[in-house]
Design a protein around this nucleic acid. Structure first.
Length: 218
DNA sequence: ACATTAATTGTGT
DNA sequence: ACACAATTAATGT
């Protein structure tokens, strides 16, 4: 694949040109592998060895963790310009992944072999910043999530969830069932249905089978 | 066009 | 939480 290099370079320039310095961009085009993932693909699973770090060009990846009763907890989504910060820990100590990453929306990624990661931390300021920022952002986001878990009513959690989805698909119509929402928020379908109905009556959203349309002001 | 069926959503207890 | 009713989409005839 000789033109892989070209693709990587072009893609990097559109999404990451502001983030990384020239030399690093060069290295990435040398070594990165461009990959396309479609919805439903599993990027990384529990126990998998981390051999690559993904840089997300677009689309969305859903990151989950399994709890004791092996149901999944939704941690966060990776979107354009993101990377899986948590996975760096795994790489650096050669650990297996504790998380699962499933493609939520067709995504383009550039895969970076892990052995480069550490060198770049030393050699490139922009890389350091990228990683640390990424960590910082995740941390903030997780704090928000915890806050919403402990303090916020399910009503608000659903609203947050919907906002998130709207952002991901960039449309105001989400294709999803109540059951799936319930799974993501660790609630039950009936409760979700009731709250969604309430939101519909308040004019915030319009419900349809397998879809939810949020109003403009949402 | 109509009937059947399965999946999703709504509601009362 | 459960059970059941109602609605919707898909499929076959």
């Amino acid at each position: 694949m000789e033109n892989n290099k070209e693709i990587v370079r072009k893609k990097m320039n559109t999404t990451f040109s502001k983030v990384f310095e020239k030399e690093l961009l060069d290295e990435i085009s040398e070594i990165g592998v461009y990959k396309n993932f479609i919805k439903g693909d599993t990027l990384i699973n529990f126990g998998d060895e981390m051999i690559h770090i993904p840089l997300i060009l677009n689309g969305a990846i859903k990151i989950t963790k399994e709890d004791e009763n092996d149901d999944e907890i939704l941690l966060y989504y990776l979107e354009k310009g993101d990377t899986c910060a948590i996975s760096f820990v795994n790489c650096i100590n050669q650990n297996k992944s504790v998380f699962r990453g499933v493609v939520e929306k067709n995504s383009e990624c550039i895969l970076i072999p892990v052995h480069k990661i550490e060198n770049w931390l030393i050699n490139y300021k922009s890389w350091r910043h990228f990683i640390i920022d990424s960590y910082h952002f995740r941390l903030i986001e997780m704090v928000e999530t915890i806050k919403s878990l402990t303090f916020m009513k399910l009503d608000d959690r659903i609203q947050n969830y919907l906002k998130q989805q709207v952002k991901i698909v960039k449309k105001d119509t989400i294709v999803i069932t109540h059951q799936q929402i319930a799974d993501d928020l660790n609630s039950s379908r009936v409760v979700i249905s009731r709250i969604l109905k309430k939101l519909e009556n308040m004019g915030e959203i319009v419900l349809g089978r397998n879809k939810i349309t949020v109003s403009k002001s949402f």
